[in-house]
Nucleic acid binder design. Structure first.
Lengths: 172, 172
DNA sequence: CCAAACTGTTTTAAGCCTAAAATGTTTTCC
DNA sequence: GGAAAACATTTTAGGCTTAAAACAGTTTGG
């Protein structure tokens, strides 16, 4: 229950933000709930991937990115898409090349760049896993109505935009 | 765009689920968006904790759990609350005891059990960090209206319940 | 009583992950 | 042209994380 006065104080005139210690308990609880949901689902998916296919979640995620890019991606692209560090991708790719799921080659036009693709084996295995994976997700969300799903999509889009804006404020 | 026929087929009579390969693209997109939001916010919080306080996110999370339990918690409790493995907690606690933030002692009534608490230093540092942390979260979610927050809370509660049910189906 | 089942924690082995520094390559722009 | 900036990737050092096995203590049921 945020006091209505807080909003009024925050909006008044051109003066700098009022220094009243505000109550942000609701946002904090929202963040913890968001984190709980993600951790719960992520753990479940991780376990099923391991049990059914003996594959890790990061490997699956990387293959998912590549499946959408038949012409391959650079390591930087992958790193941005997966929102993980560059060094992380290096190791992940190493292991997937080793196991025959990925093909990696140096770009001919820019020798800094490594382009990676799924191999035939990699694509086949990924498709097989992805089909089952989709049913797991459907089951995990199965109590939500189509309207719930739409509404969540909308609110999470707004959340994402808000967080990106906030992050940009700190790192202009 | 899910075909309306899918829903009709699923609901017809008592027959077992129809084997039509269904379209769960919406749920999949929802899951990816949820994951994106969490990753984005988590990364932001992690970076700020490191820059401002030179502390890692898992250490902060563990201290947050203990701050809510003045009489201490067992490692198992912490592990369940944080939704991480037991072994993970062991190492985390080790480092926080080493740095003087945690106190750890064997329970007198059950010698298997380790009870951990925040030290005076640990509590003071945590409170300092938590105050700032709360403003970061508020800022990250600042584009959401109070109504958005309430609605998200409600939908995520439903999501959590759905996922827990699904997980329980596989591991009864 | 005491063996078996159970519970709480630690250890192990392997992989994931990050931030920061280092390396090699290309672009910019004077 | 060549120094400086920018870029892509790898390396490094350290911490996080998991699943499974091992260990230690407690409870239970014959």
């Amino acid at each position: 229950m945020p006091a209505a006065s807080d909003c009024i104080e925050m909006l008044d005139s051109e003066t700098k933000a009022v220094e009243t210690p505000e109550d942000h308990a609701e946002e904090l609880r929202l963040w913890l709930r968001l984190l709980t949901c993600t951790t719960l689902i992520e753990g479940e998916v991780r376990g099923r991937l391991r049990q059914r296919f003996d594959v890790t979640l990061p490997r699956f995620d990387l293959m998912a990115q590549l499946d959408k890019a038949p012409d391959g991606m650079t390591l930087s692209d992958v790193s941005k898409r997966m929102m993980v560090s560059n060094g992380n991708v290096t190791g992940l790719v190493e292991r997937l090349v080793e196991s025959g799921h990925l093909d990696r080659r140096t770009s001919e036009t820019d020798r800094r760049v490594q382009v990676i693709r799924l191999t035939k084996l990699g694509r086949a295995e990924f498709r097989r896993m992805a089909a089952e994976h989709e049913t797991w997700i459907a089951d995990l969300f199965s109590d939500l109505t189509p309207k719930d799903v739409r509404e969540l999509m909308r609110l999470l889009a707004k959340t994402k935009a808000s967080a990106q804006k906030s992050a940009a404020r700190r790192r202009p």
